[in-house]
Nucleic acid binder design. Structure first.
Lengths: 230, 230
DNA sequence: TGTACATCAGTGAACGCGCGTTCACTGATGTAC
DNA sequence: TGTACATCAGTGAACGCGCGTTCACTGATGTAC
């Protein structure tokens, strides 16, 4: 951040740029982000943007980080709406929020989970921590449910040893206070929900199952049972 | 197709263009397809391509159709490798082929299931039939297994009435010779596999579960039981 | 077998547009005396 | 309170590059007589 006269104005400009960037992406696709286009929309010349972002890639990075954070907050908010002990309800609402986010803020969703942007490489040290945020929200419900005796996860002998080893690594690396089978449930859930949402988002389901919202609810209900939520 | 002097040469040129297009997309992303770039690679001027494709969009359409067809054939081939009565094995291999296709031919996979290409609109009358092809391969195993008494699908009362209605529509529209619960299984399977594959493809799993191949196998084994394959 | 001619396949120039980034610059702003 | 001056915020021109598509054209090819 260069020296700035008015911090508030500066921050407003930052936000304005990112908002217009998202608008542009939602019209033209995530890969068509153009600094000149943003400058045009903003009524300013293109070089002016370089005071706010050193390059186009830095703008993209900021948008990706924002996207992950927004998703994580959305999921957290959905979780907070609930009686703590209603684990089935909490989990369901988190999943619903995941879907709603994907459909309503599809730019952000495509940006974080869709095709990579050509020529752009995400700086891992920046994006990885934010990826974890999302994943953490899911974990918390599982862990709390399990500790309350309200989750009966898959027995560990149904998991491949290498998978177990991988999960153990995450558990220790991120200091997640739980066991492998519980952790496995998080991934089983996430991958399922993600699949349904992705296919719905890109309109591969509506031609086939028809009412995608109800299909989602149906799959969600079955999933909750399968995962062992009591 | 314009009048052509040598049909074989013409077809070879068509293939060459599409091959270079795929190569370009795999380097620069599906949205960065450039006719001029292809012409350059081909050692020819850009207008020459207009003898083969009336526009960039027509080339994209051809690539998408090819992608769906290739995926469908890959799945069919995986299915053909098997003792007909080994339904669990057949289903597992189809899913493995789906994953392998996504990872090995990721351009095609991103093209058909990933972010839409900005400014491009798929002509539905062309692409929809090819979408069905893929879906059909999955259906066949389910139907055959069910008819052989080797699949115990979810009871219909666990499905939402509207979802049932939607599935009935597909069944009659495409003249699929089976019942709603069997059809539902196809979607339950597809969405699950798709979710795992998508997340692996874009490297969201490797940071977390570690060995993604084994994670896939693990999820697949569980899925086969859940779906009711005997 | 030899020649005239239609046509196919690809060229080269042009149109009008886009892009990210660098650079020297100007005018407005706030501050220090 | 008034003026000089540093610096911030944004300008405008330029660099060197990209793109899809149209158009009149040329040279090679195969065919018909």
């Amino acid at each position: 951040m260069p020296r700035v006269r008015d911090v508030q104005l500066y921050d407003e400009m930052l936000e304005a740029i990112k908002t217009l960037a998202r608008a542009q992406m939602s019209q033209e696709g995530t890969s068509s982000l153009s600094l000149r286009g943003i400058a045009r929309d903003l009524g300013v010349t293109a070089p002016a943007l370089y005071r706010y972002f050193p390059s186009r890639d830095d703008l993209i990075t900021a948008l990706i980080v924002d996207g992950f954070t927004a998703l994580a907050h959305t999921l957290e908010a959905a979780d907070a709406n609930h009686d703590c002990a209603d684990y089935r309800g909490r989990f369901a609402d988190i999943c619903r929020a995941y879907r709603r986010f994907a459909l309503e803020r599809s730019v952000d969703f495509q940006l974080i989970y869709g095709n990579p942007i050509p020529g752009y490489v995400a700086p891992k040290e920046v994006t990885v921590p934010t990826v974890i945020q999302v994943f953490t929200v899911f974990s918390i419900v599982f862990i709390e449910a399990f500790n309350a005796g309200k989750l009966k996860p898959l027995p560990q002998d149904r998991l491949q040893p290498t998978v177990v080893a991988g999960l153990e690594q995450i558990i220790t690396r991120n200091q997640v206070p739980t066991d492998v089978p519980v952790m496995y449930g998080v991934f089983a859930a996430w991958t399922k929900i993600h699949g349904v949402v992705m296919l719905e988002l890109f309109h591969h389901l509506e031609q086939t199952v028809g009412d995608t919202a109800l299909f989602f609810e149906n799959e969600l209900a079955l999933l909750i049972d399968q995962l062992g939520f009591l």
